[in-house]
Design a protein around this nucleic acid. Structure first.
Lengths: 120, 120
DNA sequence: CTACTACTGAACCATATGGTTCAGTATGCC
DNA sequence: GGCATACTGAACCATATGGTTCAGTAGTAG
């Protein structure tokens, strides 16, 4: 609940800010894939794709394991929960504040009417 | 539903990937604030804070208006909905896939038992 | 008119990011 | 063993990012 120490959020959001990486997450939703599979599909060098996977892995959004010479990637959803949790927390607060503002506006309007009456 | 054309998502996620900017969004949840207010609170130059606000504004997460010489910032929540929508879409798909995998595993186990029986 | 305040814009700087190439290393297969 | 495959690491490059300073511009107030 306390979001002071949230170093992961930086990494998670940054990882999601790239179209290719979101595409990778999408693809990994259908099947586990090797670095080569992904590099081919996104028309990128192995090294380039490996970097993206590294970013996703560091952000906890992807988990990989190496069997023989091939590294297989699959998604890890826990961090996405953290991301949505952050957003939901603040959206709730914001919505609450908007409601308050509505009340303040209503109160001001009432007071305005009262003042108008006393001025009479 | 089609996320091919999602150029905003890049900007939204990137905007949220910075601790200071998330802090700004948090503060704007309590009150509308000027650039100066925010610069003071985050111990940063006016110019620096203005850049952050620019990023948030470009991402549609903050709306500003200038009255006289002071620019006031408030939050705009619509884009956050897009962000959570993207996440929820894929998480649903992923969860569905995990369920499928469970079934496949279960089916394999059944087949294994059958094979064991026929082998008898 | 003067002085202060609030912001803006340009220029600069260090570091990070997204990508490449090229040269390994390690595994799998005939 | 010998060759192809799959990845890894270092080096490099262009651009973006997060910040600064400094020099404006434009409201506000006395």
């Amino acid at each position: 609940m306390v979001q002071y120490a949230a170093p992961d959020l930086d990494a998670s959001f940054a990882a999601l800010a790239d179209r290719t990486r979101r595409g990778v997450l999408e693809q990994l939703g259908y099947a586990e894939l090797s670095i080569t599979d992904l590099a081919v599909q996104f028309q990128m060098t192995l090294t380039g794709m490996r970097k993206h996977i590294g970013v996703l892995e560091a952000a906890g959004l992807v988990v990989t394991r190496k069997v023989g010479r091939v590294r297989t990637c699959r998604i890890g959803t826990e961090r996405l929960d953290e991301v949505t949790a952050w957003i939901d927390t603040y959206r709730q607060r914001w919505d609450a504040r908007f409601d308050e503002l509505d009340k303040v506006v209503a109160a001001l309007e009432q007071k305005e009417q009262q003042d108008a009456r006393t001025r009479r």
